[in-house]
């Protein structure tokens, strides 16, 4: 069994990597021109935030914090389908 303190030394590096990616993704979301561009960046941002949720759950050693991971992974497809349906219906009228 690997001791938990080994992971505790590596966790700040992982937090730093994924938080930096989160900041750059959200800058892309805030400065996008068209709505399709924004939805594409929101997809990548949500996938990044799922990993940050799992890292927070590993940091506190609490499995209850992971309750939002699977609805967040399902929301990616739901947002894509809803926005695409809106865009294609708006063209046909």
């Amino acid at each position: 069994m690997v001791s938990y303190s080994v992971l505790e030394g590596v966790l700040p590096l992982l937090f730093g990597l994924f938080t930096l990616a989160m900041i750059i993704y959200s800058l892309r979301v805030f400065t996008s021109k068209s709505v399709s561009d924004m939805v594409l960046a929101v997809d990548a941002l949500t996938i990044d935030l799922i990993i940050i949720f799992v890292l927070i759950g590993l940091y506190y050693k609490s499995p209850y914090l992971l309750i939002g991971v699977i609805p967040l992974a399902a929301w990616i497809l739901i947002l894509d389908i809803v926005v695409s349906r809106y865009l294609s219906k708006g063209d046909r009228k």
């Binding site: 979301v29 949720f53 927070i56 506190y60 309750i67 926005v83």
Partner: peptide, 28 residues
């Protein structure tokens, strides 16, 4: 779409402050 992004960031803050019940309400 931006309102959804704002809710996601608040969910991150709620996970850091150890409030899973508010977190599932925010996400759902």
């Amino acid at each position: 779409v931006l309102a959804g992004v704002e809710s996601v960031f608040f969910a991150i803050a709620l996970a850091i402050f150890l409030a899973p019940d508010l977190l599932i309400a925010y996400i759902a």
